[in-house]
Structures are given as C-alpha cells and as structure tokens.
Design a protein around this nucleic acid. Structure first.
Lengths: 215, 215
DNA sequence: GGTTGTGAATACATTCACAGCA
DNA sequence: TGCTGTGAATGTATTCACAACC
C-alpha cells in the first residue's frame, strides 16, 4: 500500500516521532466530533504549535494534505496509525507487582489503545501464583518461556531502582524490544532497544526550578 | 549566599533544566556510595552523555569544578538542589481520587524528595469526606479556601481527559503555579504556569514506531 | 598529567516565505 | 482564494578543542 511518489526521509528526527502520537490523539478526538477536514493552522491552534511545524513533521512521511483545503482527518489519522505501528495490538508484560505495578495493571488507558498487559512477573515468591485481575504472577525464572509463548515484545518495569538494571538486562536477553520504565533510574540499554522513562519526580524537580522565586 | 564572580545567563535552555534533576539524582547516589569527587568524564559514562554537555550545562549556573580534579559531589549536589529549588519542601494537592488518583497518593516516591500531597479534591460528592491514607477528600468548591490555607503551590491532576482543562483552569485561578498532569490530554495554560505531562500511552506510541518493522 | 570552563564550530530543529496546486 | 509542501534562513543545542589552572 505504499504510494510510489512519496519520499520517505531515511532519518526522521526523534522529536518528530514524539509528536506524532499527539497528532494522532487530537485527530481521533476531531473524528469523534464528526469533523472531516482540518488545516495545519487550525491544528496548530488546538495544539499550541506553529502550522509550519505540523506540515514539516508530516512531510517526513508523505504528502497527506490537499492545497487550499487541508487534511482529511480520517485519512491522516489512518496514515499516522500505520506510521506509528498503532494500527495493531501490542502485547506487554509487567515486571514488579508492588503498589506501583498493581496501579499500572489497573490503569485503564492502555487497552483501548491496543496495549495489552498479558503477563506479570515478580522476584518475590510470596507473590507467585496470585492473581491480578485476570493474569497470574509468574516467577522471574519463567520469563524466557512466557515471553516466547505469548509473543510479548514490550516490557513494563515497575521494580525498585536497585533492581531495574538487572530486570532490563533480563528482558533484553530474552528478546524484548521496547521498555517502559517506571523505576526512578535510567538503565543502560543497547542502541537497538527503545526505552521510555516515566518519572514524575524528575518532572516535579524541573518544575520547581521555575517556581522557586515566585511569591 | 551568591558568589559574586559567577555569571548567570539570563536564559537557561529548558533542556538544560530538564537534565539537572538527573544530575542531582546520580550525585545523590554517588554520595551515598561514599564517593567524594567525580569528573565530567566519569559522570558522562554513568549517564550515557558527553562530558562536554555536562560541563556546559553546569556552566549556565556557575563554576562548580576544580581543574585537574573534577567536582566535589557534596558541594555540587548542594548547589543543584538550591538551583532547582528542591532544597526545601513543596506542598501539592491531588485532583481526582479515582483509581489513578489513589495510586498517585500511594506512590512512595514523592515524599522522600520533599513533595507532600496535603489535600485531595474530587467533583464526585460520593467521594467527599472519605479518607485516603491520612488526608480527606474535599469538594471542588473548597479548593480556593484549602489552597490558600495550606499554602499549596502544586496541583496534580488525575481526572478524566474531558475534565482536565476545567480543573487546570480552576487551579490556576486560585493561585497554583505548577501542574503535574496525568490526564491523557495537554490542557492549555498561560506562559507563567509550568506544566508537566505524564502520559505513558504517548510514550508507548512513540516506541512502537521503532519496533513495528522488527521481526 | 588531568580536568574544568567556554568561545567557536558544527549539528540539529524550527520557522519563514513562497511556488504550486485545488 | 486558501492551503500544502518544502527549500532557505534562522534559531537552538551539542560538541569540539584548547587556554587556564590544580
């Protein structure tokens, strides 16, 4: 389904990739609102960014708009979902089922977007074989087997900082391709592994820089 | 306690500010490990970044190192904590005490870093006056009064996407300076308000871009 | 020798501005 | 006319490379 005319730049800047899901989300909302077409100007107003940036970002992947008209929302959303790889489901496992891990399993935002947590692991044997919702907690020893059997490609890490590097190494050894890390530390990973860190404390600590002189 | 010789650039790039907490965290770890001095080279190895970037980042705020030796860890950490404003406590409130909000209140990472959630609010009256740990859930109407009384400057938003803009507006109206937003949408805020978004789904969706062609 | 701090150079990201098209 | 797509221009961030210093 490739368009023969489109030019795909070999290297898309990562900042651009980070913005695509934001575009996809707002387009999805617009679609639900029953809107058909939108210009980069209007999109920029909604997202608080310049129309030129939106057009430039999209131009890395193809020519999706119509001059004089704008972008067809359904079409553009579809293209973006394909580009991002979110037009299909992804299977993830959770490592660490303490308070944080249990909160993650109960987070209702993943599954509607196609991210399904289909296995959980913990190093504490007291937690093994207990159930969390409809998945059971496995031992770390069963990691290789379960990852393979269930075709899991994403690991969600919710263990204490001290264990994070070890867990990440194990995940990578057994074929995980992407890691969503909630541990308050940034483990080292080889270049072909893609990792995202969720770290609310770091966010707060960079906020207070701007707040400390007020009042 | 200002050093008279140091030059403080009037505009520090935001990317630099975002990295400072990362430096502070690793320095804290090194201090606990009993290490006294570290070079930008060693720090760069630990953090997977170039020594030049670390030196340049720090140079925005002063001259903290010693040629031929490196940085005294205790001293640098202390300076960074002061620069970031994390050498004192911050009082936050939580808005939205659904599953996500309750997970946030129970998150054990905030308080050791000086961020204390001292009030909670919810628009659902069935939740009012219930207790979460040792704080009670207040009505949205009491927001102005409670924020003022308890000198709260940070708002943590954990409401559904649809309510997020309204809640953020209310927080700003009543004097909140910083917002940590967990809602899967980026509300609009005036320039003087500093907001950080925590959005694991966006993180996953930008991950899959790099994963979709593997295997 | 070893390491910082920093201008200069390079690399990268954003914005401008306009030709081209519906 | 109205808007896209995109080279060129500008603005920002990173890295280099070296004088200054311990």
């Amino acid at each position: 389904m490739l368009k023969s005319t489109q030019t795909i730049h070999s290297e898309v800047p990562e900042v651009v990739v980070l913005r695509l899901p934001i575009y996809a989300r707002v387009l999805n909302q617009l679609m639900e609102d029953g809107i058909d077409v939108i210009s980069s100007q209007q999109l920029g107003d909604l997202l608080q960014m310049t129309p030129a940036q939106i057009r430039k970002d999209l131009s890395y992947f193809g020519r999706f708009g119509k001059q004089g008209r704008g972008y067809n929302i359904t079409f553009l959303l579809d293209e973006l979902r394909q580009i991002l790889g979110i037009n299909r489901g992804w299977r993830a496992c959770l490592i660490g089922v303490g308070r944080l891990g249990r909160a993650i399993i109960n987070y209702p935002g993943f599954s509607p977007e196609g991210f399904e947590i289909v296995a959980a692991f913990d190093s504490d044997s007291k937690r093994h074989a207990t159930m969390l919702g409809n998945i059971s907690v496995n031992s770390m020893e069963s990691l290789p087997k379960v990852l393979k059997e269930r075709n899991i490609t994403i690991g969600i890490v919710a263990v204490p900082a001290i264990q994070a590097q070890m867990v990440v190494d194990a995940l990578i050894t057994h074929g995980i391709q992407g890691i969503l890390n909630y541990a308050p530390v940034a483990p080292h990973v080889p270049a072909h592994i893609i990792m995202r860190n969720i770290d609310p404390v770091l966010s707060l600590q960079s906020m207070t820089f701007y707040m400390k002189d007020n009042l």
